[in-house]
Amino acid sequence: MRAELRKLLGLPTAWVGLVLGLIAAPALVLVNAPGMRRAIDSGQTADLGYENLGIGLLGALILGVVTVSSEYTSTGDDAPGAHQMTATLLAMPRRSHLLVAKGAALVLVVAVQGALTASATVWLTRVVLPEHAPPFAPGRMAAAVLYWVLLALLAYAVTLIFRNGVITLTVFIINSSVVSVSYLLTKLTPWAAYLPDIVGAHMFLRSDLIDLRISPVTAGLVMTMWVVALLAVAAYLFHRRPA
């Protein structure tokens, strides 16, 4: 696992994810101050600060994708079929051990990043809007961090299935920032609220994102089940496929 941490943190793209994840949410507090004042005027203060945490998940997604996609990037024009995964499997031929070590390194990095970002964002909200910010709630923050960790693992599993970071990253980023396909689906069927990216947000947001209300614990469990299921598929394929 030490090797996997070193490997992940040695990648420039991983640092893009780290920095983006760290600064995006706190920065949004400052940029979005007018929006938050409008929310205050309309009396919706329950999620003040916390809703900005959503943007920081981009960092977690990038980290989850990069930890796998970097393994499958071609190492050079002279050997287009060659990639780092060969070296990785030669060093750690037990595939299940490798997947656990990679996942653990990812969880550690995202959890530390999430804890720092969540604290900074909530603290900044209190500085910018002292009289309206919701009280400091460690439980909600922990839930937000857990949401990030689960999303990172989700990206990790999906990238492992497709063995290509571009597909995963495109789908996740478009879905989380431009047009939320999952959100649109909730308009068609309430069951779409249980899609992993939507249900997870219920873990730390209190206002109703959509008409359906899901308790934080249920949300956490449902999202965990998604992650476990996708990880199981990814691990199965990883064992079966030639490197």
Partner: peptide, 13 residues
């Protein structure tokens, strides 16, 4: 010790 196609190193590393 094994030597296969390519260096095995990520290009950015």
């Amino acid at each position: 010790g094994a030597l296969l196609d390519g260096s095995g190193a990520h290009r950015a590393r």
